[in-house]
Write a protein that binds this DNA or RNA. Structure first.
Lengths: 208, 208
DNA sequence: TCGGTATTCTTACGTCGTAAATACGGCGCT
DNA sequence: AGCGCCGTATTTACGACGTAAGAATACCGA
């Protein structure tokens, strides 16, 4: 008899369910009806808390952003920034099906703005002028989001080579890809990501 | 009387029409029916040349890749690579609505593989060891595609600030964003992109 | 208990991707 | 010229989608 009382719907509960659903089934599988039934509710009920599907997707990127672990202020600017981008990439690993939303529909919330502010503060206090701080922010963000996307979806323009093994490609036509066949088989993505981060951060330090 | 004889359908004609259509109307507006009528044909006719909508999208990124202007070999590795990524970014400007496809569904064609091969060749001949060549390729590609995406969709996590002007944000809570209000109003994206490219390329040269 | 408000459900419409069956048009035969 | 073949185009149909409009229900303070 003791049927669990159904919890009331709420924007937050919907968004979190949506993230879980997409984590499990993929972005394309997400529909209002299916998300509704996930919550034991009809599709149209969702519209009381979310104005349409676009807003639902936007809300999902809010959830992701909320999970981002912002490192504390006290550990030196370089380390702080490093950790921030590592955390960003971690998001991609934890939600590979949701993450692309973040790239395709940039967030427009106070939380997002606050992150930018925090970031710029760190760089300004490190001694960069405003212009350079901005450039640095964008260079790092571009790199990190590009890398994370590539990692999730397969590296653009590095297709069958790595996935199927270079074996099927003629050695004569593609000697350099072939040369990388073995290393490509198990790249250390952590190291690779850090390589790029090092490159950019080292360059930035020189401009201090 | 002289009605223009309707050209026969073909995969290529379909893909090009799809790119034109999306350039004009946006990705979300693309449907088999509308693309069909664009070509004076019923939706189902398209399926004789393209196995489904997914394949259509893949084909569209092939078209984009085909438009990429690969710089000649003879101008020194650094300049060649610079020009290649500039051309890549140009793609994003010319097809802002199609470009995201390239990020979300990495191409898997011989043309794509050939581009990688060409790239690796350039870096190997410049003197990089295979491992570093690979890392360099991916660092640059991540940066470039991340930057191009951000440019197209609005910079992730730099939202209302730039778009609405920082005026609406309290100066006390967001001093650093506010500080950038004016510069943000007209950033020179070319310069900004080059800044990041410089950073990475400079770092790479040191590892030669 | 009542009345009103906020939430949920039902029904309905137009659009989507695409499977299946049908019709068509141009070709090589005889 | 007539016939049949085969690839292309059309018709029709199905189930799923997002969501507008209205009806039903649940909840809450008086």
């Amino acid at each position: 008899m003791a049927v669990v009382k159904r919890q009331p719907l709420s924007r937050q509960r919907i968004l979190e369910a949506a993230v879980r659903f997409v984590d499990r089934e993929g972005l394309e599988a997400l529909s209002m009806r299916k998300l509704g039934s996930e919550l034991g509710v009809e599709a149209m009920s969702l519209y009381n808390h979310v104005s349409n599907k676009g807003a639902l997707l936007d809300g999902m990127v809010e959830v992701l952003l909320g999970e981002l672990e912002v490192p504390p202020e006290d550990e030196g600017w370089e380390r702080r920034i490093r950790e921030a981008y590592r955390a960003f990439r971690r998001l991609a690993h934890e939600h590979p099906n949701v993450f692309p939303l973040l790239v395709v529909r940039p967030p427009d919330t106070m939380d997002g703005i606050w992150l930018v502010e925090e970031f710029l503060k760190t760089l300004r206090e490190a001694g960069f002028d405003p212009q350079t701080a901005l450039y640095a922010f964008r260079a790092l963000s571009s790199y990190a989001s590009g890398y994370a996307m590539a990692e999730i979806r397969g590296f653009a323009m590095e297709p069958a080579a790595a996935r199927a093994g270079a074996g099927t490609l003629s050695v004569d036509d593609f000697p350099h890809i072939h040369e990388l066949d073995a290393p490509l088989r198990d790249v250390d993505h952590d190291a690779e990501f850090e390589f790029g981060l090092d490159l950019i951060l080292a360059g930035l330090k020189e401009r201090l």
